[in-house]
């Protein structure tokens, strides 16, 4: 098979894939490279020497707005959205394993917010808060706005998880005298733990880079994406690129540590078993 001639279709598709990868990572890599621009360099190539000048510049608030504060808010908000998404999706996923009255309308109601344009969700929530005389804030209205995005996704993931979950595990637990709570705690949760970690990661990243839904709901204090957007309009130095590089690196660290956590759990189980 291996010495069979590759067809024109193969090269066409391979070229297409190459372009796709270039589009995916090209901008990120370009920004990463430009963020090491020398102190006198500009926003575009060529590089005028290289330095860490712009990274240092990043941590001077007067230069680039409230980078530290917005990062902190985004991390906190991400954690809040993550925790809520995991708990609510898990509970909803468990509920949907049995049919109940009104389950189908409720499901459509829950996922409808995925098809509503996100800026409209943002606008609506912003208006609603305004009408009710409440202040919009990242920890209130923006938190709710982001949940309209992450909860339906979490629910859909849990559907997929439980459709593959063999109910005889629970019957076996019940047969061995486990209470419903013990069954959840000692059988269901450990078995679906990797999927729950996936939901958590998903919830966090969706929140962390969410823009449109947060735009009109965040109130006075910006989240990181909003802050970056504001910077692009009034900053014209490579400090912007330094920021991009740093946040991208942070995302990779988060994802990397999650993968590491899964690997460690797997290895520990295997070692205990050996």
């Amino acid at each position: 098979m291996s010495d069979r001639k590759r067809t024109a279709g193969f090269y066409l598709l391979a070229g297409f894939f190459g372009l796709y990868v270039l589009f995916l990572y090209g901008p990120t890599i370009t920004i990463a490279v430009l963020s090491f621009q020398g102190p006198n360099g500009g926003l575009t190539f060529p590089m005028n020497g290289h330095s860490l000048h712009w990274f240092a510049n990043l941590f001077q608030p007067q230069m680039v707005g409230d980078f530290g504060g917005s990062l902190e808010r985004s991390l906190l908000l991400g954690a809040m959205v993550m925790a809520t998404t995991v708990v609510v999706s898990l509970a909803a996923g468990l509920a949907y394993r049995k049919r109940f009255k009104g389950d189908t309308p409720l499901f459509y109601l829950a996922v409808a917010s995925l098809v509503v344009p996100s800026i409209l969700v943002s606008l609506g929530i912003g208006l609603m808060f305004g009408q009710s005389g409440l202040d919009t804030a990242w920890y209130g209205s923006a938190y709710g706005a982001q949940l309209t995005w992450t909860l339906p996704f979490g629910l859909l993931i849990m559907f997929a998880v439980f459709s593959r979950f063999n109910p005889s595990y629970e019957e076996a637990a019940r047969d061995l005298g486990a209470s419903p709570w013990q069954t959840l705690r000692h059988v269901v949760l450990p078995i679906i733990a990797p999927s729950l970690l996936g939901v958590a990661l998903f919830g966090f990243t969706l929140s962390y880079d969410e823009f449109a839904r947060t735009l009109l709901t965040a109130g006075e204090d910006n989240t990181l994406p909003l802050e970056i957007y504001a910077m692009t309009t009034n900053i014209t130095t490579p400090v912007l690129y330094a920021l991009g590089t740093l946040t991208t690196a942070f995302s990779f660290v988060v994802i990397g540590s999650c993968i590491a956590a899964v690997l460690i759990i797997q290895r520990r189980r295997a070692r205990r078993a050996a």
């Binding site: 076996a172 005298g177 486990a178 450990p190 078995i191």
Partner: peptide, 30 residues
């Protein structure tokens, strides 16, 4: 669990995250 019966399932339904000892000890743990 209150009937004095125990069931062996068709696909055995062994808990995949527990080793053999912990699988067997599960009923006692509960």
């Amino acid at each position: 669990a209150k009937r004095g019966t125990a069931m062996m399932f068709q696909n055995y339904a062994l808990f995949p995250h527990l080793n053999c000892v912990d699988n067997v000890a599960f009923g006692l743990k509960m």
